[in-house]
Nucleic acid binder design. Structure first.
Lengths: 327, 327
DNA sequence: GGGGTTTTTGCTCGATTTGAGCATTTCTCC
DNA sequence: GGAGAAATGCTCAAATCGAGCAAAAACCCC
């Protein structure tokens, strides 16, 4: 049980930081992506972690994002550390360290506005480009019924043993809400991993060194970045329910409809407007400013602001998300 | 935004794995600890991660736990990656790598029974030894009212600026449920971090190279291991509410009272027996086996088993935990 | 073998929360 | 000035939650 470390004997390790940076633009949740090294596919911003100069991961991350993009991150949270062999091979090769193992610590960062970027290398993209099956705001996406569900059913059927077939069916049913099971927006990561295993995303074939299969869902990303993005989306979808992190994505003042559109964009399904407001009211997260917003069409809405200290005793810590039964 | 890695220029990094391994014994949640290197204080099991032989972190962890303790881990989940400068200095020194930065990936592992261990170096300890203020099963612990709350209030008062004082008060009030705020068992990590900042745990003085202060709460651990343990406890307390992970800690057959005692031991507060059963019933996680348990005193209870596939449509994914108002 | 104790198990009841819909107000646009 | 759009206000039934009462089934001790 005692550690016996001989760093000389261990293989080389390079530690990097990957950031999933979300910002809202017109009530739509966007993610910051760059052009990948191996050409073509978008990638997440990646920066090396230098143990000499960075006292903590988070300090390193903030510094590097500031330097590269020119803006300051608000909320930052560690997501997961990715260390499977084979990942980031092109990065390691580029660094002249083919033998090094690249480990990256994934971070989620939130920032209020999708600001213009210093360089032209990075751009904001709506997350739904990468996970079209996750956006149920206009009802269940056709791609689910028409492509994904049949493909997953036949993947489950492919399993040899009857036991494994049943296990696959169960997993498909629970993650993709088949046969009346409830759709859980927080399982976005589970769904991506299942699609990867079933070979329905382009990354699956690529990582096996094969040609892409007949079905490739959503926009692919470099390395395992789409998995990291799915982790971030799942985490954010869960987090907004028990911490008021949405307000890290709003401007200082906003209308309640704007806030609702933003939450809907994160959760991926429409909310019941009145019940959403009732819940907001009970939680006491926002207060009216008295000022109105001049908008196109319709009665003008009051601008609200986030009130940080909810000093009442038994209040909620996050938003309740009153979903509608039929999306 | 492009990665420019020059591994030669970066400082040395050693990656290790820390495991928080929980097991239930007589309905009590125990954690596996070893003797630390710097003498005296208990430590979490630690193993080096070798990029040459371990394809993934999880495989490395399972292998190493099997080799060291002789048993197989059931459920495994990554917790957090700890990389602040200054941690694990003694480990690095021992390895002849004083200049290396030690990063460790923390894992949570669950295993059904607190089995006897191969070596004598490790032992099972109830988690409450490390966090006595977290155990509310017999009512609110005296240490909270008598020691912690006064100490935190005076810590808040110490702040110079009135603004900072108010911020400290708010934080204390929300994490430690002062003035009628609700106690949230999942905030165990927040509470530990607050106590650390306020200098009320032995680690705080030790890390600053000072002598221990007048108040040192709970059993201290080596390095930042108590923080890792707090992370694990918080994660487990949250997880049981939306995934049936408790059953990774139960034997194959158990009585409902045994299951309840275990959940109480994890959550740290007593549950309403009838409502707990009603919720279990609705979720459909367990089924009776018909066999009875012969117990000392009282009506014998039926033995139950976990049913993995909950095939009903709209059912819950975790246990609901019906707490009692006055602990 | 009978009363007391302990534990399991079944049931009820009111308060609160949740999901959903209707109605009214207050703007802009044509 | 009327139609349409969006915000806002209110009601209602179903489901859930927190809490307590009571019966059943074993054991203990005398």
């Amino acid at each position: 049980m005692k550690p016996e470390i001989d760093p000389g004997a261990l293989g080389r390790v390079v530690v990097g930081l990957n950031a999933v940076i979300f910002a809202a633009d017109e009530g739509e949740l966007n993610v910051l992506v760059t052009e990948s090294l191996d050409g073509g596919q978008p990638a997440l911003p990646f920066g090396p972690f230098d143990p000499e100069t960075h006292r903590t991961f988070e300090i390193g991350l903030r510094e590097w994002v500031r330097g590269q993009t020119g803006f300051e991150l608000g909320y930052v949270e560690q997501l997961y550390t990715f260390g499977d062999r084979g990942r980031e091979a092109p990065v390691a090769a580029l660094a002249g360290a083919e033998d090094a193992r690249v480990i990256s610590v994934g971070y989620l960062g939130l920032t209020p506005e999708a600001r213009a970027l210093k360089g032209a290398e990075a751009r904001w993209v709506a997350w739904s480009r990468f996970f079209p099956w996750e956006d149920h705001r206009d009802g269940k996406p056709a791609i689910l019924s028409e492509v994904i569900e049949p493909a997953l059913r036949s993947w489950a059927d492919e399993a040899a043993a009857p036991g494994r077939r049943a296990a696959r069916y169960d997993r498909v049913r629970l993650t993709f809400a088949l046969d009346g099971a409830p759709w859980s927006e927080e399982r976005a990561l589970d769904r991506y991993e299942l699609l990867y295993e079933a070979g329905l995303v382009a990354e699956a074939a690529r990582d096996r060194g094969e040609a892409a299969g007949p079905v490739t869902l959503g926009q692919a990303m470099a390395s395992d970045h789409r998995r990291i993005l799915a982790t971030a989306l799942s985490r954010l979808r869960g987090k907004i329910k028990y911490r008021p992190v949405v307000f890290e994505l709003t401007p200082a003042e906003f209308t309640l409809s704007h806030l609702q559109r933003l939450v809907e964009s994160i959760a991926g399904f429409p909310l019941h407007k009145q019940n959403f407001r009732r819940a907001l009211d009970r939680a006491g997260f926002v207060e009216g400013t008295g000022r109105m917003e001049a908008k196109t069409g319709g009665r003008p809405a009051e601008l609200h602001r986030f009130v940080r200290a909810t000093l009442r005793s038994g209040d909620a810590l996050g938003l309740s998300i009153p979903r509608l039964k039929d999306g």
